[in-house]
């Protein structure tokens, strides 16, 4: 096995008139990784995947699939990829089975794989029904079946859990895990962060088309010591912290106030607060979740939504 990345992008960019949907994205996905591509709505996830799959022409930059960076190489590489984009795109008037027959013909695989894949995604009983009559979750399942037809080395999924019930999500997770265990490389976009945290080995967080951070899940979430503090008067706490030299950031969450610290000295923090008459009902080391990291990195994007709501 070579060390060539399965996916590598070089300053990949796409502009739609004045919108920079994807802005100089450079990432590398290595063989065997489960790579989560995370970002808020409109951050360019689908556009990036569209470019990798040859249906959107980049305005600048380039990318390599299995080391191939020319159009011919991309086409050949796509035979080793299984992918779906955003909403499942199938012929509405044809049955799920016939839709898979079209995909299987393009991929050059036999019809026996079709039943196998329908079985895996739990659609075996509905394969003869028209795609139009499927529920959203069933459409997603069919899309998943289509990606698996050619037993791909790289699976690219755009919001695979979109529209699935908890049972379906668990099944998708199980399928992804099985594929990962078999050594497949998986690239998936999502905003269901707790889902991703449980599955991914690596993540990239994107915002407004730019990669904010990329690394292993552990690298992204635990770079900083944090303390979770609950007090009666959060305002007084924040005011007091303004003078605390060790604090680098304060964030109010549903759980309490999260303080980013320069050092590991929680006892020192407690002493400092008590000296100012602030007594914590709760003080603990806070393990940042991927969701926290995500919110922090993409803060501001949802601001307008809450402003409208309030």
């Amino acid at each position: 096995m070579s060390d060539t990345p399965v996916i590598q992008t070089f300053e990949l960019s796409k502009r739609f008139r004045e919108v920079r949907a994807v802005d100089r994205v450079s990432i590398a996905v290595k063989r065997g990784q489960v790579f989560g591509f995370l970002g808020p709505n409109g951050s360019g996830k689908t556009t990036t995947i569209g470019m990798l799959m040859g249906i959107i022409t980049p305005t600048a930059g380039s990318f390599a699939l299995f080391g191939a960076s020319d159009p011919k190489g991309h086409l050949a590489a796509r035979a080793r990829v299984g992918a779906t984009l955003e909403t499942p795109n199938f012929y509405p008037y044809m049955s799920g089975r016939d839709n898979l027959r079209v995909a299987a013909t393009i991929k050059g695989v036999g019809n026996d794989r079709i039943d196998e894949c329908l079985e895996i995604v739990g659609l075996a009983g509905r394969g003869r029904h028209r795609f139009r009559t499927y529920s959203l979750g069933m459409k997603q399942r069919l899309a998943l079946a289509a990606t698996m037809l050619n037993d791909p080395e790289l699976v690219i999924l755009d919001e695979p859990a979109n529209g699935l019930d908890p049972q379906g999500m668990k099944e998708v997770r199980d399928i992804i895990r099985i594929l990962a265990d078999r050594g497949k490389t998986i690239f998936l976009s999502s905003h269901l962060l707790w889902e991703v945290e449980r599955m991914c080995t690596h993540v990239a967080i994107v915002r407004k088309g730019q990669v904010m951070k990329v690394g292993t899940v552990a690298e992204i979430v635990s770079e900083q010591v944090r303390a979770l503090v609950r007090v009666e008067d959060a305002g007084a706490l924040e005011a007091a912290l303004a003078d605390y030299p060790d604090a680098t950031g304060v964030q109010t969450t549903d759980e309490g106030t999260v303080i980013s610290l320069r050092s590991d000295d929680l006892a020192g923090l407690n002493r400092y607060l008590a000296a100012r008459g602030i007594y914590a009902s709760h003080l603990s080391r806070h393990q940042q979740t991927l969701e926290d990291a995500f919110i922090e990195l993409t803060r501001g994007d949802y601001g307008s939504m809450t402003e409208i709501a309030s």
Binding site: G50, M53, G54, I55, L75, R78, A79, A83, T84, L85, T87, N89, F90, Y91, P92, V102, A103, I106, K107, A146
Partner: peptide, 14 residues
């Protein structure tokens, strides 16, 4: 229907 896009994703050149 964007099925042409899916055809390309599945490996058909434009």
């Amino acid at each position: 229907w964007k099925t042409a896009g899916q055809n390309v994703i599945d490996g058909l050149a434009k």
